[in-house]
Computed example of a mutant assay.
Amino acid sequence: MKTSTNKVLPGLLIAGSLGGVGAIMVGLLSLAPKVDDGSGPGPQPQGSTVQIQNAGAYDLPPTVGPGGKNVPLMPARLDAPPPAAAAPIVPPIPPAKTKTKRATPTRIKIPAIKVNAPIGPVTVDIQGALDTPPLGKPNRTGWYRFSPVPGELGPAIINGHVSTKRGSAVFYRLHELAKGNQIYVYRSDGKVTRFTVSGVEQASKNSFPTARVYGNTSNAQLRLITCGGVYNKTTHSFSDNIIVYATLSKKKG
């Protein structure tokens, strides 16, 4: 099967990460980049802390929840699939025929939480953790450049800081998103993609849902990732990740 993810597979393997393609075994998804926050000890997003005493599959919901402001976020079972689309799905954008013409995402807008931010590429560090945008640019988001271009087949990955030492950052309110909210991603080829949120969860970094986030999909999807939970002043790290799942529902250009 020819997909944009297939075309970047050599890059994924070189980077020590894997986005999931075709009939690749789920076990190989353990090679997907680990998610690190890189955040400073800024303010924590209000109402997003979830203490997870046991992340075993039998103690968690079988589906990702719809999210919403002031709604406690919980992780789903690790074997749960991505949440079902909340709006009619449109076909993905065909990738460029040559790699040199590959589009890149340039800007993301999320009206519900007043996000209007530039997007830059990120990759993985030497430990295999997904890089984040520079701390000196708290309003910038990062597109994992070995994931699909937003709008093309597969799960495109965009992350951003929840806070820095200066205060709140671009995804500070990400935990407020709910099923049905819209996300717009602008591309360098002039195309504008609209994704509709299908679910939101908060998962412990010790039990990150790798297959659900990076696994192969039959349509164009988007994953937004930031930090949440408890901030550890010693390790300068949050305990959890906030993950937003969305599906392509409109495209133009």
Score class of each variant (00 low, 15 high):
K69A: 14
N70Q: 05
N70I: 00
V71R: 15
V71L: 11
P72M: 08
P72I: 04
P72Y: 06
L73P: 00
L73K: 04
M74V: 10
M74E: 15
M74R: 11
M74D: 07
M74C: 04
P75C: 06
P75I: 04
P75V: 02
P75D: 08
A76Q: 04
A76C: 09
R77S: 14
R77M: 07
L78G: 09
L78I: 07
L78M: 13
D79L: 03
D79T: 09
D79H: 03
A80R: 06
P81N: 03
P81T: 02
P81Q: 04
P82K: 02
P82L: 01
A85W: 00
A85N: 01
A85K: 01
A86Y: 02
A87S: 13
P88T: 01
I89A: 06
I89N: 00
I89C: 01
V90F: 09
V90K: 13
V90M: 11
V90Y: 10
V90E: 10
P91M: 11
P92D: 08
P92T: 05
I93C: 08
I93S: 06
I93Q: 12
P94M: 13
P94G: 09
P95A: 00
P95L: 02
A96Y: 05
K97Q: 15
K97H: 11
K99A: 14
K99W: 10
K99T: 14
T100A: 06
T100K: 15
K101M: 08
K101I: 00
R102P: 02
R102K: 11
R102F: 00
A103Y: 02
A103C: 02
A103P: 00
A103R: 09
A103T: 04
T104W: 01
P105F: 02
P105G: 05
T106Q: 08
T106P: 09
T106D: 12
I108D: 08
I108G: 04
I110Y: 05
I110F: 08
I110G: 09
P111T: 10
P111M: 12
P111H: 10
P111I: 10
A112N: 13
A112S: 15
A112Q: 13
A112K: 15
A112Y: 12
I113P: 14
I113V: 15
I113K: 10
K114D: 12
K114S: 11
V115Y: 12
V115K: 12
V115G: 10
N116M: 03
N116A: 07
N116W: 01
A117N: 13
A117H: 07
P118E: 13
P118V: 13
I119Y: 03
G120V: 03
P121D: 05
T123P: 00
T123D: 15
T123M: 11
T123S: 15
T123H: 14
V124Y: 08
V124H: 07
